[in-house]
Nucleic acid binder design. Structure first.
Ligand SMILES: NC(=O)c1ccc[n+]([C@@H]2O[C@H](COP(=O)([O-])OP(=O)(O)OC[C@H]3O[C@@H](n4cnc5c(N)ncnc54)[C@H](O)[C@@H]3O)[C@@H](O)[C@H]2O)c1
Ligand SMILES: NC(=O)c1ccc[n+]([C@@H]2O[C@H](COP(=O)([O-])OP(=O)(O)OC[C@H]3O[C@@H](n4cnc5c(N)ncnc54)[C@H](O)[C@@H]3O)[C@@H](O)[C@H]2O)c1
Lengths: 203, 203
DNA sequence: ATACTTTTGTGATTTTTTTCACATAAAAAA
DNA sequence: TTTTTTATGTGAAAAAAATCACAAAAGTAT
């Protein structure tokens, strides 16, 4: 494929590093620096760039700000994105309080829960009743959702998101969810990630 | 490769489904059921099993309890694992309160922080001073760690873990960490995961 | 008992991803 | 200026992963 899934993930990582470089006023960077940072090879870096027609200068590497601009364009980082979280529990609240999203144009617009004890209309972002999700999502044109509810509620929450017009979701519930083909879902299974650490540690 | 990385991750997912099946007293399962559940094909399932010499019965599929037993063995799920978390902040506390780990033999033995306001010796698991990590890890024979501290502290925390005898870690800090080759590190970058949802949603 | 159907198991094939090999350009040195 | 050194860029090759194609077994129907 021209645009491989793996490459895209790496492009986001290169971008991260470039932002750090920019913050310390670094002007130039080599494929080798990028490779070291994300833990791959310079060949892989250049191949990724080649795939997306990102080019630098022979012998002189890449201009940080220029490359960053091109990556922003490519990865759609020029427009801000509103995100809603359903489930104001442990994970939902942790994500809500994380400032790293906002910095990257990801605005947690609101959380939703069905437990009235979690409601907090004055908080920023507010924690609202799940009944308000449909209206909120459609009137605020939200396209991205995060599912942070227990397994048994996950499918119904996803269905609600889809009906409200959300187009993609990150799901923390460790259960497979059904969604239409034009909906993108990214399942995060932290337990399996930890279990795999145990596995590879024992090898 | 005989034991592919992708296959291993899927084996953990198959195992999850099998546990759910066992809980509802299902005796038999077909490769197709397993495939549907984790979102792959039956061919992939059988190929994964073939790779690890897991076999079933023609026409009759697999015995849930038998397959589960073999997977437990293969994935090293027969012995419990102690895990320590460094950083008792948003992520650290969310993981601490998650009961899904303990159920799968992953015991959060303790959390560590450098902020004395976080300490809680009486909690289960306790939140202890970072200075106690070395002793705790070596005397409790802990092999797995979770890094849930800010970026700027992540490398020093990892170094401390390694010196204390930890062999593998799950890292939430979105920064590359240096570790020896015999140390396994699984980097979880939730922002990139969310950004990729945005990317694919816009395609 | 025989034919039919369904499902596993795996070698062969295809696709995807990574790595190699080297041409090419530009800066630095001679 | 000419040579040398050091990067990039990309087709070709290799490796890894997924899919195909079909044989073989075992259950069900006739
Ligand atoms: N906490 C962790 O570290 C962790 C780790 C791995 C996976 N997960 C998964 O992430 C998900 C959330 O975990 P958590 O620890 O935050 O759970 P939690 O119990 O702390 O929070 C869940 C929240 O969802 C709300 N909720 C339940 N049903 C709802 C519904 N139908 N509509 C709206 N809100 C509803 C609850 O009121 C609660 O506030 C779970 O599926 C869990 O398996 C969590
Ligand atoms: N919260 C999220 O949703 C989220 C999302 C993506 C990534 N992350 C990453 O996960 C990590 C933790 O995030 P968080 O939101 O839990 O942060 P946090 O600030 O809530 O918690 C960090 C904790 O680490 C402790 N700490 C700091 N330096 C330490 C040190 N040297 N030794 C021991 N303890 C130390 C602090 O006292 C604090 O309790 C960060 O690297 C963050 O970038 C978090």
């Amino acid at each position: 494929m021209k645009t491989s899934k793996q490459s895209i993930l790496r492009l986001f990582q290169y971008r991260d590093f470039l932002i750090r470089l920019k913050n310390i006023n670094t002007v130039n960077v080599f494929s080798d620096n990028l490779a070291k940072d994300i833990g791959t090879t310079s060949i892989q870096v250049r191949k990724d760039f080649s795939l997306f027609r990102l080019s630098g200068n022979k012998k002189a590497g890449y201009k940080v700000s220029n490359l960053l601009k091109q990556l922003d364009e490519l990865l759609g980082k020029n427009k801000k994105q509103k995100v809603v979280i359903v489930g104001a529990g442990n994970i939902g609240k942790a994500l809500m309080q994380y400032d790293g999203f906002y910095k990257e144009g990801l605005e947690i617009a609101a959380l939703f829960d069905y437990d009235r004890r979690k409601y907090n209309h004055k908080n920023n972002p507010p924690v609202l009743p799940i009944e308000d999700l449909f209206k909120f999502v459609s009137s605020n044109n939200v396209k991205i959702g995060i599912i942070a509810v227990p397994c048994k509620a996950a499918q119904q929450v996803l269905d609600l998101m889809i009906s409200a017009g959300i187009k993609g979701a990150m799901n923390f519930a460790p259960i497979p969810l059904k969604s239409p083909k034009n909906f993108y879902i990214n399942n995060i299974n932290l337990r399996v990630e930890l279990e795999s650490v145990v596995y590879y540690t024992q090898m």
